[in-house]
């Protein structure tokens, strides 16, 4: 169908989106790269000078950096573990013939549509608050001392909140994959004498492998950027106990006004994200053909 006329028209139609995204990608990233080599603080903008690798050195050797990297990893891996395992279990459960499947699906998917600040506030005040939260009510009911979640287990608390937000996403995608499983294949395996466990291991899991990969990779992209949940609940504290890389950079830029340092941190974040992205692109790219 590709005639010469449509081709030149197609070029014209593609152009705005491509140009916009190109600008969106090149200009800010270029600026970040440039700033990352400057001594530039908004509190003292007049004194701006070339810094070389100083910002990188400073950012990386800051003890908060290592803490942030560890926290980021704990956050990402913790949430991934909960959502993937929980997602598979829940997907298998609601794929069974049950009454009210539609409503169950709606209830399960709902947390995903709660905007991050609201999710964080709900958990902070309604559920995990040391005196008025539901967890505290339960603890008192059991005769236990209520836990001050955000003071005692700040990172765990954030992992729980974020996992609650993303568990529906994992479930929904894994359920979609599960439902596309060929029923005849299952029946053939049953005829061949495969039990339900071996059917799960040899048919269901390999079938879902792709969806699981996609869930892991896409969630990783979003989980690396967790911000509002931390801002609303712990502000990264106590100390740096719940500061992730995103939050650390935000703090450098907006609270310390250290443009150069924040930019260097940003470039480091880009590099980390790209490592993940490469894998994601491969997984998604296969689907294009």
């Amino acid at each position: 169908m590709a005639t010469r006329q449509t081709q030149s028209l197609a070029r014209l139609m593609r152009a705005p989106a491509i140009i916009l995204l190109l600008i969106w990608m090149v200009v800010p990233l270029g600026m970040t790269l440039y700033y990352s080599f400057l001594n530039y603080n908004l509190l003292n903008p007049a004194v701006t000078s070339w810094a070389g690798w100083f910002n990188y050195q400073y950012f990386v050797t800051d003890p908060a950096f290592m803490a942030a990297i560890v926290n980021t990893l704990v956050l990402v891996l913790g949430v991934l573990a909960i959502t993937v395992i929980g997602g598979i279990a829940i997907a298998l459960l609601i794929d069974k013939p049950i009454w009210g499947q539609g409503i169950v699906r709606i209830l399960i998917i709902s947390p995903f549509f709660v905007m991050p600040p609201v999710a964080a506030l709900i958990w902070k005040n309604m559920i995990m608050h040391p005196s008025y939260g539901v967890f505290a009510d339960i603890a008192r009911f059991l005769g236990l001392q209520p836990v001050d979640w955000f003071a005692q287990y700040p990172l765990t608390s954030i992992v729980i909140i974020v996992a609650w937000q993303w568990l529906p996403f994992a479930t929904l995608i894994l359920l979609t994959a599960l439902q596309s499983l060929d029923g005849e294949q299952m029946e053939a395996a049953e005829m061949d004498g495969a039990g339900s466990v071996s059917r799960f291991i040899h048919l269901t899991l390999p079938h879902m492998a792709r969806a699981i990969t996609v869930v892991i990779l896409i969630q990783t992209i979003f989980l690396l950027g967790i911000y509002a949940e931390i801002l609303v609940t712990t502000n990264g504290g106590p100390g740096n106990a719940s500061t992730n890389l995103t939050y650390l950079i935000y703090r450098a830029a907006r609270l310390n006004f250290d443009i150069g340092g924040a930019a260097a941190g940003g470039i480091i974040a880009v590099i980390l994200a790209n490592l993940v992205a490469i894998f994601l692109m491969r997984a998604v790219g296969k689907n294009l053909d």
Partner: peptide, 8 residues
């Protein structure tokens, strides 16, 4: 990552 371009 959004935070990478926060500064600019």
């Amino acid at each position: 990552p959004a935070v990478a371009v926060l500064v600019p």
